[in-house]
Design a protein around this nucleic acid. Structure first.
Lengths: 203, 203
DNA sequence: GTCTATAGGTTGATAGAC
DNA sequence: GTCTATCAACCTATAGAC
């Protein structure tokens, strides 16, 4: 496997701690997250945390990896499909005006984590990596579409970054403002862009 | 004036506190910001803060307003210019791969604040407002360009949100990852979009 | 208006019983 | 492995001298 994460399965307690930290993070945000508040969401006692993790920092980095993996696994696309449809489905999943509760929670937790990348170099490295993989996913779809003559022969790397930035901007807007219409508009304009600039005119 | 902020000029001490909080925020990030750390950046004693602000929260909300005003004032564009050039200059200022130090600091501080919008409704309202005004700025340029037959007769509101999301995504990427090239690519693709989809073909 | 001192609570983390 | 009890450090905020 290519995963850099240790292969071991999580014990029931570890799973509990992950879930409790996730919930506490949603409730209070990264800045107001404390071991006590995680304990409040936990079935057992808060000190059990220190049996599995060295420190609060260690716990949070582990949760970040855990969350990123779950988030990325929800993005796995059916590769047999038309590249244009695959791309549009990916965008719809990320920019849906009212996503599935789970998806919304992932986005919220990841936005909270991401802001820590400004001052925390470990978290910054993680998100550099996250974006790299998101870009890979999009670029592969584009390159396949170009190879199959579905897409124009654009610069796949540049278009990838452009699409990815727009998606992240849309998610960011959804999670940090009440401007729901802005997300809808961003979504529909991004689809228009794909239709008019990317998809080849059928001759 | 339309500003909802009190008109009074800041005293030297207040100015000092704003600057110290700004610096402490850059150094430690929102989550690890404390009154003591703000005091470390301050000429005087940390308790002087409580003579001017009721609480840490009050101080931070004030700094947010202060920062937003300064940030927006750096965006004032020369309205006599060609709308296409005005728009491109605005984008270049926000997505420059290596912006002026002041601009970079504003973006960093605002990204830190913005993540708090997820759990803090006062801050969320502020950023809803910030985005509204940014959208107004872009929309006015687009509408002027359409009126002057420089731009195609696009849906100005939708295109505005699309451009704004891409810009925010680019800033977000710059501040939270090491993927400098991604920002450059986003910038150049956004300019290409304007050239090919927005600017009217000269007949 | 600015300072020192300090109250009173919360923080992350540990010791040690079971 | 899970618990209770506890520590020392730090937190926000205030009291009160100057």
């Amino acid at each position: 496997m290519t995963s850099d994460q240790s292969e071991h399965t999580l014990s029931a307690t570890e799973e509990n701690i992950m879930k409790a930290t996730h919930t506490a993070l949603l409730k209070h945000g990264y800045a107001d997250l404390s071991i006590a508040r995680i304990g409040d969401e936990l079935d057992g006692s808060k000190s059990s945390i220190y049996h599995y993790y060295d420190s609060k920092d260690d716990l949070l980095i582990t949760l970040l990896e855990f969350t990123v993996n779950k988030f990325e696994s929800t993005l796995d696309t059916e590769p047999s499909q038309n590249p244009a449809e695959t791309l549009k489905q990916l965008i719809a999943k990320l920019l849906a005006p009212d996503p599935v509760e789970d998806d919304y929670q992932f986005q919220t937790v990841l936005v909270g984590f991401r802001s820590q990348a400004v001052t925390n170099s470990r978290i910054r490295a993680q998100f550099t990596h996250v974006d790299e993989r998101l870009a890979d996913t999009i670029r592969e779809i584009l390159e396949r579409g170009i190879a199959e003559n579905v897409f124009e022969a654009v610069n796949a790397s540049e278009v990838t970054e452009y699409i990815l930035a727009t998606i992240k901007g849309g998610i960011y807007t959804r999670v940090t403002t009440d401007r729901v219409d802005a997300v809808t508009a961003t979504h529909s304009m991004l689809v228009s862009y794909i239709d008019s600039e990317l998809i080849q005119d059928t001759v």
